[in-house]
């Protein structure tokens, strides 16, 4: 499925504040449009408000954080528009995870250590699909693990028996459970080794092609974002300072901060760029 022009989630003029003394304006006037089936990268340094904004889109903000202004609209596949900000109690509960799911930062550690993977996956269905039979649930759980490349026999395992990469895959399976239309991934692979990270990214891309969900991918790893995203938004101190396709952001960055961010990643195979080692070379060897 190719990303088309149809939006699935739009945010307009979102302001989020942490109501502490003095108040922290974590997100200022952020507007985003996520199209069906696309990967939108959200990049920025720690503390720039990217996680706060993601929580705002999913109505996960907890006091003292408060969305002070702005609208978030979810455009359902059946044509209905849902005003996310106005959702209350039961309607909010059915919205979350069903329409928009999330893979949390450091989610390797967010599995419950004293519950088996089976119980934790079943839990999603007993909560959101109360009519589902036990046997159906079991089949669906096994299918989900298969989707993310974990052997279904691992259902009986406890989190500590799985490697970091496998735990992360289980978290992605859990986020996929209800066929959401949007998945928000907050630094899903940061704590993992590069080779494992690569495997998981590939898995996410493959699943997206198959299932057609849209992804908001949050990370500070700009080279990775440029490689995988359709569009990228760059955040600085709570504001989105630049938005564009991955190619635009990479080849023709407009904002100074984007340029600076790009320059802080050395190129692996290319020229040295800013990464010339300074200082007088005291060796006679080939070091540049």
């Amino acid at each position: 499925m190719r990303p088309d022009a149809q939006p699935v989630l739009t945010a307009r003029g979102v302001f989020i504040e942490y109501e502490v003394d003095p108040p922290v304006k974590a997100v200022r006037n952020a507007s985003l449009t996520l199209h069906r089936g696309e990967i939108l990268g959200l990049a920025g340094e720690s503390g720039c408000g990217k996680t706060t904004l993601a929580y705002g889109l999913n109505r996960l903000l907890k006091a003292p954080a408060l969305m002070t202004a702005g609208e978030v609209t979810f455009h359902d596949a059946d044509g209905r528009d849902i005003d996310v900000v106005e959702l209350r109690d039961e309607s909010l509960r059915t919205f979350r995870w069903d329409k928009v799911s999330m893979v949390f930062q450091g989610s390797m550690n967010s599995l419950n250590p004293v519950m088996s993977i089976r119980r934790q996956l079943h839990d999603v269905f007993t909560t959101h699909r109360p009519g589902m039979r036990r046997r159906e649930r079991e089949a669906r759980c096994a299918e989900l693990l298969g989707l993310v490349g974990v052997d279904p026999s691992r259902l009986s395992s406890f989190p500590h028996e799985l490697s970091g990469g496998m735990r992360q895959r289980v978290m992605i399976a859990m986020a996929l459970a209800l066929d959401p239309q949007v998945m928000i991934m907050d630094e899903p692979t940061t704590a993992l080794d590069v080779v494992v990270q690569r495997g998981i990214i590939r898995e996410i891309m493959r699943l997206r092609e198959r299932l057609g969900f849209a992804v908001i991918f949050i990370t500070h790893d700009l080279p990775l974002l440029i490689e995988i995203s359709d569009r990228i938004a760059i955040m600085l101190e709570g504001e989105i300072v630049e938005q564009g396709t991955a190619a635009e952001v990479y080849r023709a960055p407009r904002h100074d901060y984007t340029k600076r961010l790009l320059a802080s990643f050395p190129s692996l195979r290319g020229e040295r760029g800013d990464f010339v080692r300074r200082g007088a070379d005291t060796t006679t060897g080939d070091a540049a």
Binding site: V194, R198, R202, M205, L224, I226, R269
Partner: peptide, 30 residues
């Protein structure tokens, strides 16, 4: 880095993100 000999070094290099490859993984998967 530019002329790796061992298989593992090549695996590591392939796993490192390179913005020059933008869109390649998507097309490959597609």
């Amino acid at each position: 880095i530019l002329d790796p000999q061992h298989e593992y070094t090549k695996t590591l290099l392939d796993a490192a993100a390179d913005p020059e490859n933008l869109g390649m993984l998507r097309d490959e998967v597609r």
